[in-house]
């Protein structure tokens, strides 16, 4: 490893500068490269390597019942769910009053807050332009899953 970069210091100036005409950037990168080269001493941290953190572990509690869905629309903006976001949905979680769910209304998926009201289930958006939707008994309605996480690109 060391030898590659030693020779690299002599030869690569021309080569690298072709890719990075910006001289300052090149200098900085070269410094960076030099800093990370193991120069023969074993790292004192070698014995403490503990794998890596997996987002799956953090976001998926039940692997059999967890599914991903894509959001289309702005009605849940108020709770931080935006158009194009990626939802982590778990079907094993009971849909209690107030949780954000994927509901099926007349054969279509929708993401809303679920309220168990005396007059029946209500789907509430998080946007001033979208009124509450009371589900009528004759409507096709079911809760498909409970939204656990929203993955949003900043």
């Amino acid at each position: 490893m060391q030898s590659i970069f030693h020779s690299g210091r002599h030869n690569s100036r021309g080569l690298l500068s072709l890719v990075h005409p910006n001289k300052e950037l090149f200098q900085r990168q070269r410094a960076l490269l030099r800093g990370t080269i193991p120069a023969g001493f074993p790292s004192p941290a070698d014995d403490y390597v503990a794998g890596h953190l997996s987002l799956d572990e953090h976001l998926i509690r039940h692997k059999e019942s967890t599914f991903f869905m894509r959001v289309a629309g702005v009605s849940m903006r108020g709770v931080g769910i935006y158009d194009g976001d990626l939802l982590v949905v778990d079907r094993a979680i009971p849909a209690t009053h107030g949780c954000v769910v994927i509901a099926v209304v007349d054969g279509e998926f929708t993401v809303k807050q679920l309220l168990h009201m005396p007059e029946g289930p209500v789907l509430r958006a998080a946007h001033p332009d979208y009124p509450d939707q009371l589900i009528k008994p004759e409507q096709d309605f079911s809760v498909w899953g409970v939204v656990q996480w929203n993955v949003h690109k900043v």
Partner: peptide, 14 residues
């Protein structure tokens, strides 16, 4: 392929 392809996920109305 709703469960195995990122580009083919199911879409929900937000």
């Amino acid at each position: 392929r709703y469960t195995t392809e990122w580009r083919e996920l199911a879409v929900c109305r937000g």
